[in-house]
Design a protein around this nucleic acid. Sequence first.
DNA 1: CCATTGTGATAGTATTACTATCTATTTAGA
DNA 2: TCTAAATAGATAGTAATACTATCACAATGG
Lengths: 226, 226
Amino acid sequence: MQRLMQMNVQVSEPVYLKDPQGTDLGRRIIEHSVVLIDELGLEKFTFGKLAASLGTAESSIYRYFDNKHRLLIYLIGWYWSWREYKLVFDTANIGDAATKLERGVRSITEPVTDKGNFGYLDLRALYRIAVSESSKAYMTKEVDEEHKEGCFGGFKRLCDRLRDMVLEVSPKHPYPAALASQVVDGSMVQRFFAEHLPSLTDKGTKSRIPDNFVHLVFASVNTPKR
Amino acid sequence: MQRLMQMNVQVSEPVYLKDPQGTDLGRRIIEHSVVLIDELGLEKFTFGKLAASLGTAESSIYRYFDNKHRLLIYLIGWYWSWREYKLVFDTANIGDAATKLERGVRSITEPVTDKGNFGYLDLRALYRIAVSESSKAYMTKEVDEEHKEGCFGGFKRLCDRLRDMVLEVSPKHPYPAALASQVVDGSMVQRFFAEHLPSLTDKGTKSRIPDNFVHLVFASVNTPKR
DNA sequence: CCATTGTGATAGTATTACTATCTATTTAGA
DNA sequence: TCTAAATAGATAGTAATACTATCACAATGG
């Protein structure tokens, strides 16, 4: 399964200047930027530090990405694409719509505990980046233009799949898309809160995030519009 | 009511070096930073531009705030404190727990349409900042230390109040605090999506956000643990 | 009238976010 | 095999940013 994902997960939107998957330096840029952003946080991460870590010059990196914001969009896009493939796999060949929805919600809200099998890319580090930094990919003044360019297509495709699972169970649900995006985004935020602001969450929340979201989704799905 | 809020809303946590409410320049710093951050976005907002807008020197601003991140924490903290006071008012003297919860959810998830009556501070602009930038206040590597300092007290107090309203209706709810923080944070995220990534939401979501959250909360509250 | 407080102006440093240019090496194709 | 294109690395330079430090000045209050 991971081999298959390895073959399929890619970022199709042209957020890069030159495809980093296609060259050795490109792949090392991805590998090292994941490690460095995870370590330093996005604010303190710079192309200068990345270049130093790679033993190359800043100018080489600028040949792949316009700036660190585009690089972030690329990494987060990769992450959502990966989550989408995982979702497709985790819910394949399930006939019952409710079972499918439950599995889907669990698939999306589960933490990443495995380092993955993507060669150079550390999936756990990427997951931590997604939890802490993904909102910064779209919470900007450029969001409208970047959205037009298709920069957030990975996120949208994932949300759409979950929305469709909701609709399969409950075709008249009043706000299926909003519910889906709430689950996708909310599970990341809850993960962050559980880790860093535990006083905002309930005891044991961290390990129960998927259960909580399953409860929430089915409560919503089974409750008629008032 | 607004006069009372004017008297009560303040940021008690020492996120500032010198209380900006206490001086004329301080108040102008708040006023102009709200306008500028709203206009430029946090990334392009700088103390240099703020100083130019105020007709003063950068060094004067550094006497009030260590850096723009602390200023952001201050502004967002102010916003959450204001929402808390609004919540208290909107739910005062309601005996029935369910009615109180519904009013509370509506209070928290309602958009700000009024410019407010806070003299120098444009509440609508602050609301837009809160929608777009609030997550950047805590999604950083310094979050743990800043949380210990009490920088996010306003957010926590608001979530705690909503959690208590949930518990009043359903004392055995499995994850009342997580539900509360989901509503508080999620309503901002949904607002942003409706504005900038409408393909992620359902038709008419924008005007139905409070309804959707009321539905969600009551669905959750009325659904037993599985 | 003197000490404190608040403000403004200037100057300077290190870092960041780029842009431009030149050279060297590898690779693909004719 | 020769040539052209692609790739990478090195160097240099610019403008903006995020500060820090210092000095001078005015108002204010006891």
